[in-house]
């Protein structure tokens, strides 16, 4: 008898539970609606009306200055990563994550020397996204190319495909991270244009702020799709180029005086 009634009994209990919960939810709901409605103005998702990009003036980029690199490492907690004990400089530089790096060039014909920062170029047609088997490497609606490290399996095919060597694989355990920039062993990562700042309503990246603070103003970040943005205007005025334009990836990061 009891045995026969048990399933029914469970259903009833569940029903009671649900009813009470629903009543509870109804009393909370107004609060939720209020908060969400309030936050919406600043917490919209990435929109395809925007394409984030960058213009780097290599004329203004100063030799031996690493302000952008340092700022990036601070912003994203890359500096919290410890070098494995006993590892030499050469291997450490080859293995540690470098979201942004300084490169110094000399023209073979004219001897002109150029300094510039290299990072993920945030292509419109990113090869890393094409090759990723799980879809962990993806492009957001607003053009930011990044890695969903929840589904990255660490196969490194994206690193093979990237023409800019912009991606880093995490070779060791990460003991400490910042809240805004999670990272861990066995996944691939790269510059995400300070996506946590952008989503919070900022209009600058850490590297740009640092470059500006040092008075160089070599980095300009903005919306490529907004003709009124400072970036669009600058691109219209000066001639700029994409690195490896031959691949027709339509990069979001452009360079002048290169």
């Amino acid at each position: 008898m009891t045995g026969k009634n048990e399933p029914n009994d469970m259903k009833r209990r569940e029903f009671i539970g649900r009813t009470v919960l629903a009543a509870g939810a109804a009393s909370v709901a107004p609060g939720i609606l209020l908060t969400v409605a309030n936050a919406k103005s600043e917490g919209e998702g990435a929109s395809s009306d925007i394409r984030w990009g960058m213009l780097i003036d290599s004329n203004k980029c100063v030799d031996n200055c690493t302000a952008c690199v340092d700022a990036c490492e601070r912003e994203n907690g890359i500096n919290l990563l410890q070098r494995p004990e006993g590892q030499g400089d050469e291997m450490w530089n080859a293995q540690r994550p470098q979201w942004i790096r300084k490169v110094k060039l000399r023209d073979r014909q004219t001897d002109e020397v150029t300094n510039l920062p290299m990072m993920c170029q945030h292509c419109e047609f990113p090869p890393c996204v094409d090759v990723c088997p799980t879809g962990a490497s993806f492009k957001r609606a607003d053009g930011i190319v990044m890695v969903d490290r929840h589904i990255c399996i660490g196969c490194r095919y994206c690193m093979m495909a990237c023409p800019y060597k912009a991606r880093s694989f995490i070779h060791k355990n990460v003991e400490k991270q910042t809240v805004r920039s999670p990272r861990g062993k066995g996944c691939v990562e790269s510059c995400n244009l300070c996506v946590h700042r952008i989503d919070a309503g900022a209009t600058t990246t850490a590297c740009q702020d640092a470059c500006e603070k040092d008075g160089h103003k070599a980095i300009l970040f903005g919306d490529l799709k907004d003709p009124e943005s400072q970036l669009s205007k600058a691109l219209k005025e000066k001639s700029s180029r994409q690195i490896r334009a031959d691949l027709e990836l339509n990069t979001g990061v452009r360079y002048t005086s290169l």
């Binding site: 998702g45 957001r140 969903d148 919070a200």
Partner: peptide, 18 residues
């Protein structure tokens, strides 16, 4: 909510690990 944060950039989610 992690999918909304990472892929869609919606940061004011109700459930965040942070």
């Amino acid at each position: 909510d992690r999918n909304r944060v990472v892929h869609e950039g919606v940061r004011d989610v109700k459930h965040s690990l942070a």
